[in-house]
Design a protein around this nucleic acid. Structure first.
Lengths: 335, 335
DNA sequence: CTGTTAGCGCATTCAG
DNA sequence: CTGAATGCGCTAACAG
């Protein structure tokens, strides 16, 4: 049977002090005589007392909880973010309440749960947020930070890596490597990350007097990217380079090229990805890619959320963090 | 500035009913006249009212929250589990509070946070739990379920896949495929999963009158597994098969064999893993492995936790779920 | 079916 | 510095 937890009242009785004295012992900033504190702590230890965070939240109006919304944990990139974010917030005495939500409809119901949960802030990783929901959060004064997402609403903050310049670098790198028939494999159609990378890439090509040779859509999904690869390489003349909007798809491209089409990377086709997930460094792939500053992004998001929580102001800032090109064997200069 | 949320009291005033009437409208099982309910819901919508879950938890003594403790999210196997568990609990109106904890010392401090959080249950994924902490949870009547972990304490429940028979199958499969110099690559030294897989494997070999040709330790880590592979293959006569205690290491073995040692899989060396992570199916690897029933394991853990929460009894059950051999190209019969 | 009442466990006034 | 009193927002008896 579930026992009733020990309360501060019981500790107070055992220690021969008032309940408020006990409370003060567990509040960092309250003033309490060392002697009474010792008595109280002794009694607390004896009874196995732990302050009830729920009761505390009710009165302080702060749950010390951040709601994080994710759509996919199978992408290691987001898994890494989540792990790091959790550790980061833990350091500041906050904990993450996890919500999975794939489609926008689900997000609506999830958002309702979040609002009820009294989370002090919301961290959106890879999920879409309708502007009406965003508006509701802002109206309630709950700070929202989105990572690598765009939403057409003022109140929410955004942290992103410099997708445009990442794409731009890829374009330059491939042209300068001598590639002439460069294809782009997009992620999700409505994803801002994919379209920003694409735009930078196209602009780079244009500045070099080149153009994108072919495009396909891979939905950030392995199987879809494989199908797209087959389509891109079904003609007699096929691309001599593929820029995939993320590493996961780039891996799919390489695998399909090698296993099904008998093509060599980078001898026959150069391949570049985006993210620099751990797999990209594996010997089988040696994927040239653009590294996103995961930790810096999370640090920024953490600072934004905690800052807004502390000040009680929701501001809606935008931060763009620099990316780092990583040249590996899948697309080297002078190929 | 953070606005004070609207309370049931305010809704009651607007609707011209008592505060408890409002409360009943948001409790599924309470009886309320359809007419008053309509009035209340109208007022609630007008004010944008959401019940405060914190206040509810305080009085119901149930946070509808499960604490999950993880040590690594970079292993896709655990990431998948977390995602599925989150969705599963969400369906039942529970949410996950995420705690990251690598070493045992950290677990102690994390456990303190969990106890304060008033979580209704604890789900341990890939983390060690000292028996003193386990005892404290049980003493408080908080159900604990560990997945794929062993702890020397009565009160906690455990869900595991049948590691022994998985290892046993691998042993049989390799011997029957004609392999004669079979090596084992262990995970973490103190991990029960690794040692159970190993034991089943060794028993299978013994029953076929064979023995393990060599052993090494890969710590469930890519780089360590690579180093171990180099060591295993440094002699003139090298293994003709490697059983790695998980897929992640098996991938490292294959990559090292192909990229560094110029060996073919499975022609020169057969490789088998464990888990059946998504990568195992990729064309470059085609890894023969043993699939763990992730969803069934999580379903079982969910049922165990929710059942114990509902009954108020912590029982400490053990469940072992069957595994499924997956034969792919990296180790086929008759090689 | 509805309103009234009494707390849940704790932080925070306010006197002393 | 300490204790007594108050109430956070809500659910759960209890009468009506």
């Amino acid at each position: 049977m579930k026992k009733r937890p020990v309360t501060s009242q019981q500790v107070a009785e055992l220690a021969g002090v008032s309940q408020s004295a006990v409370s003060r012992c567990f509040s960092p900033k309250a003033s309490i005589a060392p002697k009474t504190k010792a008595k109280v702590l002794a009694a607390a230890k004896q009874l196995g007392y732990r302050p009830n965070a729920i009761a505390r939240s009710l009165i302080t109006r702060s749950s010390r909880t951040i709601a994080v919304v994710m759509s996919q944990l199978d992408n290691p990139f987001y898994a890494q973010m989540l792990e790091y974010a959790s550790r980061r917030f833990q350091q500041h005495g906050y904990h993450l309440l996890l919500f999975m939500s794939s489609d926008e409809q689900e997000t609506t119901s999830v958002m309702s749960d979040i609002l009820q949960s009294q989370a002090d802030g919301i961290l959106m990783l890879a999920a879409t947020l309708s502007s009406s929901l965003a508006k509701e959060c802002v109206a309630r004064g709950i700070p929202v930070v989105m990572i690598n997402r765009t939403v057409a609403f003022e109140g929410v903050s955004q942290v992103a890596s410099d997708n445009y310049h990442g794409g731009y670098w890829v374009g330059c790198h491939l042209v300068e490597s001598g590639c002439e028939r460069i294809a782009f494999l997009a992620g999700l159609a409505d994803s801002s990350t994919s379209s920003q990378r694409r735009q930078g890439f196209l602009d780079a090509l244009a500045e070099h007097g080149a153009a994108c040779w072919a495009e396909a859509i891979g939905d950030y999904d392995f199987a879809t990217a494989q199908a797209a690869t087959r389509a891109l390489f079904s003609r007699d003349v096929y691309p001599d380079a593929v820029f995939a909007a993320n590493d996961h798809m780039a891996i799919a491209v390489i695998d399909t090229l090698k296993a099904e089409l008998g093509l060599q990377v980078p001898q026959d086709v150069a391949v570049v990805g985006f993210d620099n997930i751990p797999v990209a460094a594996w010997p089988s792939y040696q994927l040239t890619t653009v590294q996103q500053p995961i930790e810096a992004m999370v640090d920024e998001a953490t600072a934004l959320l905690l800052g807004q929580i502390a000040s009680g102001q929701v501001t809606g800032e935008r931060k763009v963090l620099p990316v780092t090109p990583i040249v590996r064997a899948s697309a080297v200069s002078g190929t």
